[in-house]
Write a protein that binds this DNA or RNA. Structure first.
Length: 325
DNA sequence: CGTTTTTGACCAGCGC
DNA sequence: GCGCTGGTCAAAAACG
């Protein structure tokens, strides 16, 4: 099983089609190789394959194995279901729900509030009154594969579990979490790879609009960055992961389409701008800009191709990733 | 008592 | 149109 993964990746002649989508950001000097990339054509991330490496690094609670990003926020269909790449990270967003970049960002329905929370249905018959849910609007997602014993990795934010489902073709259930910050619509899914139970696949959707809460629970054990300087991303999502050393190239789609390489639709925050100043005083207010400049400072040269802006990736990709090369 | 988890039901999207 | 599956809701239970 692992074999086929390796095969796809290694033999798979990375340059084929995906070389530009998936970047090997491993450190030459290290035994580990990390793959970081995104789905260029809104196809299936798992098609790119991934590889588990056994990094000769200090033991950690979780190792980042692979990251997949759906920068377009568009559908990458799950092949897991079809058995093609079972257990691999797939990002999917229903095409029909594809956020239409400009307008949607503002109307971001905050699905939950529209469905029942924001619209307390005048209960008629508990069963059928249940309000019609709005179309699901998917935000860009990205997934991480980590080798970990624990399913739910500490990432500096507090999450509330709101569902769990059995997944087809997988013996492991998938858990659904939502950020406990009421203004934050970030969600995450956690499931174990059916192929390698030691691998946890975590998929994030959305962007935190607040700082992390710190690590009240774990004492921050997961946080300590190993491969270099500290991770500077306050709203970091995966700070417990290893820091990739370099990004060769990202966002080829922008190359193709001639759009500026900034991720077109990685929302900074789904929350209406106004709510920052007024409501979440202590939160992000002043630094959407400072975050940006920070990101720019940190990664300016090498990150110029980053598709991610200071949004999701800005958070997860340790600031100065690539700054050395 | 407030918060989080569990869990069955409901709903949307998609393929056939 | 129907069935399947993933995603979400929300009441109840569990927990601190």
């Amino acid at each position: 099983m692992d074999g086929h993964k390796e095969e796809r990746l290694g033999a798979g002649d990375p340059s084929d089609d995906f070389s530009s989508s998936w970047s090997n950001i491993g450190d030459d000097s290290s035994d580990s190789v990390y793959f970081f990339g995104y789905d260029r054509e809104s196809t299936v991330l798992s098609e790119f394959g991934w590889s588990l490496h056994e990094p000769a690094l200090p033991p950690r609670t979780a190792e980042l194995v692979s990251i997949g990003i759906d920068s377009s926020g568009i559908a990458a269909r799950s092949t897991t279901a079809s058995g093609v790449g079972g257990g691999l990270a797939t990002l999917d967003a229903t095409t029909s729900n594809r956020p239409s970049v400009s307008s949607d960002s503002s109307e971001e329905p905050t699905e939950k509030s529209t469905s029942s929370g924001g619209n307390p249905q005048p209960a008629e018959t508990p069963s059928k009154v249940r309000k019609k849910r709005q179309k699901r609007v998917r935000q860009p997602r990205f997934a991480f594969m980590t080798k970990s014993e624990v399913d739910h990795l500490e990432d500096g934010y507090r999450w509330r579990k709101y569902g769990q489902k059995a997944v087809k073709n997988s013996p492991f259930p998938r858990s659904y979490y939502r950020c406990t910050n009421s203004k934050c619509t970030v969600k995450k899914r956690v499931e174990r790879s059916s192929e390698d139970p030691t691998v946890v696949i975590t998929t994030y959707e959305g962007q935190h609009c607040h700082h992390s809460v710190g690590f009240p629970r774990g004492g921050g054990g997961h946080l300590s960055p190993v491969m270099g300087d500290q991770i500077v991303s306050p709203p970091g999502m995966i700070s417990q992961f290893y820091k990739p050393q370099r990004v060769l190239e990202l966002n080829p789609s922008s190359r193709e389409t001639n759009i500026p390489s900034r991720a077109p639709n990685l929302p900074i925050c789904p929350v209406p701008a106004g709510s920052f100043g007024s409501d979440s005083h202590h939160q992000l207010s002043p630094h959407s800009s400072s975050d940006q400049s920070q990101a720019q400072q940190l990664g300016a040269t090498s990150l110029h191709d980053l598709p991610t802006d200071e949004g999701l990736l800005g958070d997860m990709v340790p600031s100065n990733m690539g700054g050395q090369r």
